[in-house]
Design a protein around this nucleic acid. Structure first.
Length: 186
DNA sequence: CCCTAGATTTACT
DNA sequence: GTAAATCTAGGGC
C-alpha cells in the first residue's frame, strides 16, 4: 500500500474529487485498524462556488481550506455532526476541499458498528456524518496532515468502473454543477 | 416505502 | 434570529 502523496492533492479540486474515488481511507485506533473504500465525494471550491464554506472569506472554521493541500478539514454542523474533507486545489484557487460522503467498509467493521451503535452494514458509512462517527473522527483531527499522520491517512485502493456525476446534496446554491461523484461497487 | 420533527454549534443574508 | 455540505426515530401508507 502507498500513501497518496501531496502532489495528488495539488490538482484541481474537481479532478481530485474524481481521482480519490476507489482510494482507501485508513484510521488507526490503538492497535486496531478501520478502513474502507471511498465511493462518493463532493468538490467544494472557492470564489467561483457559492456553496463552498470558503466562498465568502476565511474564518476560524474554514481556514484550513486555505492551507496546505492534503490536510483534513473537519467541520461541525447542524449542532450535532462532524463532516470530513480533504484540502485539495490547484494554483488557480486559494481554497478548496473534497467532502468524503460515502465509504464501503473493509476492516474494523465491528468497531464501526460499536461507534455507530447499529449493526446494519449498509447504513454504517453512507453519509458524511456517519463516516466521522464510524471512523472516530472529530474536532481533534482538524488540520491533520493526511500524507504524514500515522493514525489517519489515505492510500491507493481498487480499480473501478465509470464515475457518476450528480448535483451536490444538501445545498441550495449552484445546484446546476455536477460536483457530486460516485462509483458503484458490486 | 415516504414524510416530519428535533438534536443545537457556527456564521452571518 | 435563523439557516446550515446531517442523521435518527417514529408514524403513516
Amino acid at each position: 500500500m502507498t500513501i497518496l502523496p501531496r502532489t495528488f492533492y495539488s490538482r484541481d479540486t474537481i479532478t481530485v474529487a474524481k481521482s480519490i474515488l476507489g482510494k482507501k481511507l485508513v484510521r488507526k485506533i490503538g492497535n486496531k485498524e478501520i478502513s474502507g473504500i471511498i465511493i462518493e465525494t463532493e468538490a467544494y471550491r472557492h470564489k467561483d462556488d457559492p456553496a463552498s464554506h470558503a466562498f465568502r472569506k476565511i474564518t476560524e472554521r474554514n481556514k484550513v481550506m486555505f492551507e496546505e493541500v492534503g490536510k483534513s478539514y473537519v467541520y461541525f454542523t447542524y449542532g450535532m455532526h462532524y463532516c470530513f474533507n480533504v484540502v485539495a486545489r490547484n494554483s488557480k484557487f486559494d481554497a478548496g476541499a473534497v467532502l468524503i460522503r460515502g465509504i464501503m467498509p473493509e476492516k474494523g467493521i465491528e468497531i464501526m458498528e460499536k461507534n455507530r451503535g447499529i449493526k446494519d452494514i449498509k447504513k454504517l458509512t453512507d453519509g458524511p456524518a456517519k463516516i466521522t462517527q464510524a471512523f472516530g473522527i472529530s474536532k481533534e483531527h482538524y488540520g491533520v496532515d493526511l500524507t504524514k499522520d500515522p493514525k489517519l491517512f489515505i492510500t491507493d485502493g481498487i480499480k473501478h468502473g465509470k464515475i457518476i456525476a450528480s448535483p451536490r446534496i444538501g445545498i441550495k446554491d449552484a445546484t446546476d454543477r455536477l460536483w457530486n461523484f460516485k462509483i458503484s461497487i458490486k
